[in-house]
Design a protein around this nucleic acid. Structure first.
Lengths: 232, 232
DNA sequence: AAAGCTGTTTGATAATTGTCAAGAAGCCGC
DNA sequence: GCGGCTTCTTGACAATTATCAAACAGCTTT
């Protein structure tokens, strides 16, 4: 592990409050590994042997059923994933693969659970983290059930637009195939959805999306904090 | 509160392990109330003032967006709901209404959080409960994104069939309008989905559904523990 | 029994989304 | 530069799902 990685991980909300010696115990059992893109880190149905932390790069959580595949979330650094499976010592419900070259911290589940049992501050953080993740999932489900694919795309663009600094340009961090899966549609349909949004000032140039009529786009998208705002 | 309610609540996994005096503190601050059907207990956007426990009856969790409404879950006794909002002291993402005449235990959020801060056993239980709920939501999202409406209905019937004792008959506990919303479709479509399942031995007589060709139905539904089995 | 509910079903039609096939655009290695 | 590759887009079509309108069934009320 690089010396400058540790403080960054320490500052993750999940670890920030815990006792120093517990943090050290966890970190000594953990190891940091580099992965190239498109490596499957976790497969659905596997046991949850490690709590994962994306330190660098990005990770896609996806799932199969029925011969189809969908993307459930994209994890950006620095964040943990598959916490619930680790805490319940249950099989993974989702698979995970790297999207970019990534560095992943892997904490053996047993160590994470052991420290959780005795460090009240860590337990509190876990509850907060889980609650946030739960609520984000509720939002995803509402998004999926209550909106059309064009509306989902419009809201995604507005969301990214804000997070990227409201400059009038959105850079897609993931390729369009993955974005389509995340938004619950086929790549062909995503392409058509972008065309549908052209009259609302959405100009596509590869991964660079310009938004020239944000107010119009907002009228179409009808963004709603109770469906869109992540992390609350 | 009825004298025989307390032990039932005490045996909920959420409360089972906690210290007796903490349990008493929570229960003294709480109150149990009766509600007729179709009463809105919680509205989206409201503050999470109480942790709710369905002691008797049933509760529907639903949400609005975009002028549409969908059902996210049906809560059967004895179970808690809206735990995540309470823990984060954040606005509700879902509304809740009684479906049947119900008795609801309402625990002031502050008391729940206070005891959570000091009772490690309670904290542990909350983490387990939250993890289960998180995983159930992942399953709902997979169900919604990876299956057609007919497949969702088929799996719902098989699921209920098992839970009701595998007798060849499923009794719908909720009306078809609500079931349609839960499965993410319109009532008209649910009606047609039942017709589609007729060749697979699904016979509808009001709320009584007979399954005469379960193996055939399973071939169509392709049930998957990682998408269907609740509470793991 | 008639009237008025609510919940459900059916029919006709439209909107949305997916599938299959092919073309276009960009990128990489040689 | 030129293939050869991947990614994305477009077109034609099919499947799925929703919408609107009407009919029907089972209630309760009068």
């Amino acid at each position: 592990m690089r010396p400058d990685d540790l403080p960054v991980i320490r500052e993750l909300e999940l670890f920030a409050g815990m006792a120093e010696d517990n943090f050290e115990e966890i970190m000594q059992a953990a190891y940091l590994q580099r992965f190239p893109p498109q490596v499957e880190l976790i497969a659905e149905g596997d046991a949850a042997d490690f709590l994962h932390v994306v330190v660098e790069g990005s990770v896609e959580l996806f799932a199969h059923d029925n011969g189809r595949e969908t993307t459930l979330a994209i994890i950006q650094p620095v964040a943990t994933f598959i916490l619930a499976a680790v805490l319940r010592d249950a099989p993974h419900l989702m698979s995970a693969r790297t999207l970019a070259p990534s560095r992943i911290l892997m904490i053996p589940s047993e160590n994470a659970r052991a420290v959780f049992e005795r460090d009240a501050e860590f337990a509190r953080s876990i509850v907060q983290e889980l609650s946030i993740r739960y609520r984000d999932l509720v939002k995803s489900l509402k998004n999926q059930k209550l909106r059309t694919s064009v509306e989902r795309l419009a809201n995604y663009l507005l969301q990214e637009h804000e997070q990227q600094g409201t400059t009038g340009v959105v850079n897609l961090a993931i390729d369009k195939k993955t974005l389509a899966a995340l938004l619950g549609m086929t790549p062909e349909n995503l392409s058509r959805a972008f065309n549908t949004l052209a009259p609302y000032g959405v100009i596509v140039d590869g991964a660079k999306i310009s938004l020239t009529k944000v107010p119009d786009l907002r009228v179409l998208a009808k963004p709603n904090p109770l469906t869109d705002d992540p992390g609350t």
